[in-house]
Every structure is written in C-alpha cells, then in structure tokens.
C-alpha cells in the first residue's frame, strides 16, 4: 500500500536528510565553526554564515510547538483526519521539524520522534506523543 501524497524533490542540500530517513534516522546540519544547528539544510550556517556543515542525528525528546488536525481530503485516497505537528528539538536549538503526530496532541507536550513511510517511497519525520 503506497502512501498518498506528494514526495519531496531531492537536492544536493537535502539528499543526506532523506537518505538518513530511509535508515530510520533524522539528521540536521551543525556548523563546524560555531556549532549552531540548522534546519532545513542549506549548506550554510544561519548563525555565523560558515560554509562547513556536518550532519548530526537528532536526539529527543521533541516538544510540540503547535499542531493541527487536518480533516480535508486534499488528494484522492488521502485518509483523514490526521494530526500534523511542528516540533521543536530543545537539544538542537533553533531546529523545528514538521511531521505527522500520533497520539494525543498537546501544545508543549513531549514527543518521541522517528520516521514513517511517506509518499513516493520516502521515509518522512513522524512523532508519537509520550
């Protein structure tokens, strides 16, 4: 069963993220000069503008910045309702990632994160309420 949806276009900057996701890991950029974390990957540090970035696997927990429960079937075969959350990662300041949230959504609530099957055979970020 394929997941209905629109897959990401993969670029030089984002390929390592999607490759890692297929292995079940969520990775973000970290600046080798100043240590700042960045997401989405841009190949430049938003803090010091350094160009040497390395990939680090994120560690939890995540904290729900906010969420929405989508009821609209935007695409044929899209199963609704589902919850999407914007999740901040306190261990990685400035990093926020969007993904499906499973379990009871609570603003400020802690979530575990990983990946789940997404459209086009991609693995995409996924959260589970603690």
């Amino acid at each position: 069963m394929t997941v209905p949806g629109i897959p990401p276009a993969v670029t030089e900057e984002t390929a390592p993220f999607w490759d890692a996701a297929r292995e079940g890991r969520v990775v973000v950029e970290r600046c080798t000069a100043c240590g700042a974390h960045g997401f989405p990957p841009r190949g430049i540090c938003r803090s010091c503008r350094g160009r040497e970035m390395e990939w680090v696997e994120v560690t939890g927990p995540g904290v729900v910045y906010s969420y929405t429960v989508n009821h609209q079937r935007w695409l044929p075969d899209l199963e609704v309702p589902y919850t999407v959350a914007l999740v901040d990662l306190p261990a990685h300041p400035g990093v926020r990632i969007a993904g499906r949230l499973h379990g009871e959504p609570v603003i400020g609530g802690e979530v575990d994160f990983g990946v789940e099957e997404g459209p086009g055979g991609f693995a995409v970020p996924s959260f589970r309420a603690r």
Binding site: G5, P7, P8, A9, P40, N70, Y82, R100, G118
Partner: peptide
C-alpha cells in the same frame, strides 16, 4: 510531481494546503 523548495518539508508530511 515532487515538492520543491520549502514545500519539500511540508507536503510530504501532509501539510498539503
């Protein structure tokens, strides 16, 4: 066929509009 730019982080997880 694919979500480009900023949409790459939104559409695949169901933020479709």
């Amino acid at each position: 066929p694919a979500a480009e730019g900023p949409n790459a982080w939104l559409l695949p997880v169901g933020m479709l509009s």
